[in-house]
């Protein structure tokens, strides 16, 4: 009995169970960092996966207007499927792995990104495109040197939306045991472990904000000509 009394309960013991507890963060640093790294890894992989598929899809949709509505309808339909239902549907193909989460979240990001690419490319003024053609630009060089840079603000806006929502959705990956910080949240709910739960939730939001800020800075670097117009 004296042993229990002598050992003053830390703020995350079962008896105290405080919401904020630095000692928890200190003691379980490794676990938290691991979860955070997994979270970032899944998020980035999903975004890259979405980008890699969205770009050619958008180009195809632009080239063939008849396919555009089909592509948009399919991706919108996909977006309405709740994440908790999409992951089980992927399990037969990729099993209980991080790949399942990456593909699922990538498909959500895809919807936003295809729209962003299409809207962005469409926002390029026709006279600019025509003068580039008049200067002798072929379609490849026109896309890379003229259209993409001018479409960048719209594309980056879409990328920001996709990134922020992917960070949040990654937590659902806990269903297949690969949810990054979501695993901590789910463990925290099951054990009624408040410090763990809140730490993971706060880290999630901070990560989303951080990535968003990074993207804004990247956009400033990529499109220096917009700075004067906006600020």
């Amino acid at each position: 009995m004296t042993l229990l009394a002598a050992d003053t309960p830390s703020c995350y013991s079962r008896f105290v169970n405080e919401w904020f507890c630095w000692q928890y963060v200190d003691d379980r640093q490794d676990e938290i960092v691991d979860a955070l790294v997994e979270h970032i890894g899944i998020t980035l992989a999903a975004i890259v996966f979405g980008l890699v598929i969205a770009f050619p899809l958008a180009l195809v949709a632009r080239r063939m207007p008849r396919l555009e509505s089909t592509i948009l309808a399919l991706s919108t339909g996909l977006y309405t499927v709740p994440s908790l239902a999409l992951l089980p549907l992927l399990v037969p193909f990729t099993g209980l792995s991080a790949t399942t989460v990456v593909i699922g979240l990538g498909l959500y990001a895809l919807t936003i990104l295809v729209r962003a690419f299409l809207d962005g490319l469409r926002s390029v003024p026709d006279d600019v495109r025509e003068s580039a053609v008049g200067l002798g630009y072929g379609s490849g060089r026109l896309l890379v040197r003229v259209e993409l840079p001018l479409a960048m603000p719209v594309i980056m806006a879409g990328l920001r939306v996709a990134t922020v929502s992917t960070v949040a959705l990654t937590t659902v990956g806990t269903l297949v045991a690969n949810g990054g910080l979501g695993n901590l949240i789910s463990h925290g709910v099951q054990r009624d472990f408040r410090a763990e739960l809140l730490t993971a939730a706060v880290l999630c939001v901070l990560l989303a904000v951080l990535l968003d800020v990074l993207l804004v800075l990247t956009q400033r670097l990529l499109t220096p000509w917009t700075r004067g117009a906006h600020s």
């Binding site: 960070v167 949040a168 937590t171 659902v172 979501g182 739960l197 809140l198 939730a201 939001v205």
Partner: peptide, 15 residues
């Protein structure tokens, strides 16, 4: 609304 994970908010409210 987009940045706050639905799962995290649900978990907080339940706890």
């Amino acid at each position: 609304g987009r940045a706050v994970p639905t799962f995290a908010l649900l978990a907080l409210l339940v706890t």
